[in-house]
Nucleic acid binder design. Structure first.
Lengths: 200, 200
DNA sequence: ATGCTAGTTGACCGTTCGGTAAAATGCAAG
DNA sequence: CTTGCATTTTACCGAACGGTCAACTAGCAT
């Protein structure tokens, strides 16, 4: 079970940076197996299909974020709106450090995969949608807290949260098109100007 | 020359909806040729490579937009900020009509391609970047006009324009993840709340 | 010791990939 | 009538694709 788990996680570890830095279709099982030092038959012992692998990769990225930057950013000890600043900062520094190591702005793997596969695979789309949904909830809770504390005027927390998430993804997209994480630095802070008023 | 042009444009016409509705890697030359009623050798007479085809497709989409919705939206006769409303409306109705016909929200092909290929092909990335750059200029000019007219308080028109473009792409991304153009309808109008202040 | 099972191996499946080369066709100008 | 050029056809390339299969190994419980 120990060694078995090891093989499985070696496969995921090999797949993660590849799916992130290239695309779903452009990364083959064979390449992943070679990099992980695993035979193809062994791969299909752990993963019924390529799709199942990418789902595991998505889960790992989501966990990594949820327990890393996101947990730090949405620290209840911070004043609510500062958490959003923190998140933008984290996104910026993460993209920047990846570019320093890898030479490229890789962007958000959830956004990348969404635009690539969501018209072709509803199961993957649902998976990615769930990730976005959780992210939105984080924003929403933060906004509600900020409103309750009187930090910001009342607004439609649900829609504003969704708008902020959209903006973050859009900023990362534009940054990727320029291969330049500084775009995140320049545009990110404007996320706090976004507002959807409460319905009258 | 007439028939020749016809073959070339039949190829592009076959490729356009495919690249838009699926992805770059998922659409093969063979399929495009079959759909266009063209032999593969003939394809390579007109396009040196698959990349050259997708560049032509990008150009066609860009022209289509520039001469269609975008031209209507950025009509100088409209009050500046209403142009932005118009553009959001246009994006919404376009995505909605595509979904009605095709059954799917396909999103923005420029955004789609950017996230798929921009880490793997700098020439395509540059092409897409140029498209975004032109779009940003439209926003920027509009914002400057709105500031000059006193419609909105002074702001950093360049950065705010980029932020608005990012937001639009992000909203479409999120809508695609939900396969629901109504997201564009709900979130789109908040684009006008985005602001980057002028540097002090 | 035996049998079961999780894991592994390596060969193999048919299909598709982007791209090539040479021969054939059509057409227009000299 | 012929030359030349653009276009088209057809057959083909090697490589890679996702996925399958039967045989084999190792460890553990009965």
């Amino acid at each position: 079970m120990n060694i078995a788990t090891d093989t499985r996680s070696r496969i995921i570890a090999a797949a993660k940076p590849r799916f992130h830095s290239r695309s779903y279709a452009n990364v083959g099982i064979q390449e992943i197996c070679e990099s992980a030092g695993v035979q193809k038959g062994s791969f299909y012992h752990f993963f019924p299909s390529k799709r199942d692998l990418v789902m595991a990769v998505i889960d790992e990225f989501a966990d990594e974020w949820a327990n890393g930057f996101v947990a730090e950013a949405f620290d209840p000890a911070l004043p609510p709106m500062e958490r959003i600043d923190y998140l933008i900062d984290a996104a910026y520094f993460w993209q920047k450090s990846i570019k320093q190591v890898h030479g490229r702005m890789l962007g958000c793997i959830f956004g990348n995969l969404t635009l690539e596969v969501s018209t072709q695979d509803d199961i993957l789309r649902a998976k990615l949608l769930a990730i976005f949904s959780r992210a939105k909830t984080r924003f929403k809770d933060t906004l509600e807290e900020a409103v309750a504390a009187g930090t910001i005027p009342p607004l439609d927390a649900d829609l504003t949260a969704e708008a902020m998430l959209a903006y973050l993804e859009g900023v990362i997209l534009l940054a990727k098109s320029q291969n330049d994480p500084e775009v995140v630095y320049r545009l990110g802070p404007a996320i706090k100007t976004l507002r959807v008023e409460t319905a009258a």
